[in-house]
């Protein structure tokens, strides 16, 4: 393999004439496993500078510094339409539940109340008390008449 290009780059590096890109090429070259014998003397220099130019801090540092300055870590999260509408669904479900429970309670109280045993009574609920009283009286009178006819027959 011809290493002329690399040798030229090395010479230019030590002359201080290489660009940042060319210095990157040199670091990449020496980072690989197989370096020819006559170039190995430069390997440690370029590998070391490669390590240092790539040195970085990790997420643990970010967490620590954000905690110190009081900014909590917030990561962007993709939200689906269903997730976005979930509060609305919950509210609708709650309203429906409240209606069902309300109806059930209303129904239960109507069926167990002693003053409202018949359909007539339910109708009377909506009538003026002044109009219901004569009806009750008439009903009582009719019942009395039936009873008296029964007695006469006997």
């Amino acid at each position: 393999m011809d290493y002329k290009y690399i040798e030229q780059l090395i010479d230019r590096y030590f002359e201080g004439e290489t660009t940042l890109e060319e210095e990157h090429i040199l670091r990449e070259f020496f980072a690989q496993g197989t370096v020819p014998q006559h170039l190995r003397q430069w390997q440690q220099l370029f590998r070391s500078t490669a390590e240092l130019t790539a040195a970085h801090l990790d997420e643990q540092f970010d967490r620590r510094i954000l905690e110190i300055v009081g900014e909590t870590h917030v990561t962007a999260r993709r939200i689906t339409l269903a997730q976005r509408l979930r509060p609305l669904f919950k509210a609708a479900a709650f309203v429906a539940f409240a209606i069902v429970i309300g109806s059930a309670v209303e129904h239960a109280t109507r069926t167990t109340a002693p003053a409202e045993p018949t359909g007539d009574a339910l109708v009377q609920d909506e009538l003026d008390p002044a109009e219901t009283t004569p009806l009750d009286i008439r009903s009582a009178e009719v019942a009395e008449k039936i009873d008296s006819t029964k007695v006469l027959k006997q």
């Binding site: 240092l52 040195a55 970085h56 801090l57 954000l66 900014e71």
Partner: peptide, 21 residues
């Protein structure tokens, strides 16, 4: 201007600077 977008992105460059010294 918050810390995360204004200051934090400079961390690695600052680290290399500090490491070099």
């Amino acid at each position: 201007m918050d810390f995360r977008t204004t200051i934090l992105p400079h961390r690695d460059r600052l680290y290399r600077l500090a490491l070099g010294i």
